[in-house]
Nucleic acid binder design. Structure first.
Lengths: 223, 223
DNA sequence: ACCGAAACTTATGTATGCATTAATAAATGC
DNA sequence: GCATTTATTAATGCATACATAAGTTTCGGT
């Protein structure tokens, strides 16, 4: 089955850099020359470059000629853009999934993710909560089936991830979000198209407002 | 102003290849090894490779290890995905633009594109019509302002472009589409948010049905 | 003729080299 | 001491080289 091919250096570089960026280990705004990255990853510039091009296409870095790779800062405006798109896409995706009358088995991974969110919330484990939340959204897209949609929205999640980490500690515990997830799941099970769309839309709008509120309040204007 | 920098070979390769793909001069399904492309473009493999990575990220080609670059075939399912997303995104984008109460000056380029469509239709010039239609949609996104949205939707247009060219000759003259554009423009001018969204959604849904109908009918299953 | 194995060819992944040119540091004039 | 100009350093864009491994052909055995 899985064409088990030896992972290439490009893939390795890509995965490692992406992870380091997502988790803010490579902090927003940082500028590093290619050779330094190559050295750090223990490979030549060639595969690093190819990985960087991919990361640029995904909106995680900017390749600034002569001044190296710049890890993109987290700007409120960017988050506005991202959430505007998510508010457009996700509710429709969820509605379309609801319309396809998914079985309980199909929805099982969503059920799991939702339970994990509730559990994490009860435990006060914010990291676990974020992970489960992320998983819920990604799984939903997988189930919906539109690959392009999935890839794009996933890229947006990745872009927003860093901001979410930073703001997570500054916001109130996400009771409401968790309940909304449960409500979305319930409506998916019932195949309730319009209600699913409505709740999801609300969910996203609220999330956006909350995130942006914090970014503005704490002046994360450019970091 | 425009930091007129000498265009790099990567950019050149990217632009040329993209154009050749968009216009079906590099036909869907074609497989070419990298060295051949490099030779044809008169440069080494390095810049070609970087361009290819970008094109892959945009969903125009697939890099199949050992068997070269494959120009992606035009599949009905892909078009379904693309139009599903466009149906989600564009109406909201248009609505958002309407809500921003754009001035007549702002909308001038849309007015031009619409007129060009009407003119092209009267002249029976389908190529010009497609060009103007494309311009309308791209301009609308520019005016709306969300860069990520713009880039993504633009990539989708590019992916769909080839199928549109092929099917253009097989469909009836696009009177209805042209009128819808005029109607959208009118509602944008009036700042009528909901009506703009509604018409645009209808516009996209109809366009999708038409395209898919032709693809199915003429069995463009995989080409 | 047909199947399989060995030899050969070619594409890819990656490293390395190098000219160009931007960024930075040093040096000069005011 | 400050603003320029010149020298130095270093990053990038690209070409080239090469080992590896996938395809392809040739060849031999049946």
């Amino acid at each position: 089955m899985g064409q088990r091919v030896r992972p290439t250096r490009v893939e390795d570089a890509y995965a490692r850099l992406k992870d380091e960026i997502r988790t803010n280990r490579l902090p927003p705004g940082l500028q590093v020359p290619e050779p330094e990255i190559a050295m750090r990853l223990g490979m030549s510039r060639t595969p690093v470059r190819e990985a960087l091009i991919r990361l640029e296409a995904e909106g995680l870095i900017a390749l600034a000629p002569r001044r190296g790779v710049r890890v993109l800062p987290i700007k409120a405006d960017d988050m506005r853009e991202i959430y505007e798109i998510l508010t457009s896409l996700e509710p429709d995706a969820a509605a379309s999934l609801a319309g396809s009358k998914p079985s309980s088995d199909d929805l099982a991974p969503l059920e799991q993710a939702t339970s994990a969110m509730e559990l994490a919330l009860a435990d006060g484990n914010l990291d676990a909560w974020v992970e489960a939340d992320d998983r819920f959204h990604r799984t939903l897209l997988e189930l919906q089936g539109n690959r392009r949609l999935q890839n794009f929205v996933t890229a947006l999640y990745d872009q927003a991830h860093r901001a979410r980490i930073v703001t997570m500690q500054l916001r109130e515990t996400p009771h409401k979000s968790t309940k909304e997830h449960r409500a979305i799941l319930r409506n998916l099970q019932l195949g309730n198209v319009e209600e699913t769309r409505r709740i999801f839309r609300e969910h996203r709008q609220r999330a956006a407002q909350e995130l942006l509120g914090i970014l503005d309040k704490y002046k994360f204007g450019q970091l």
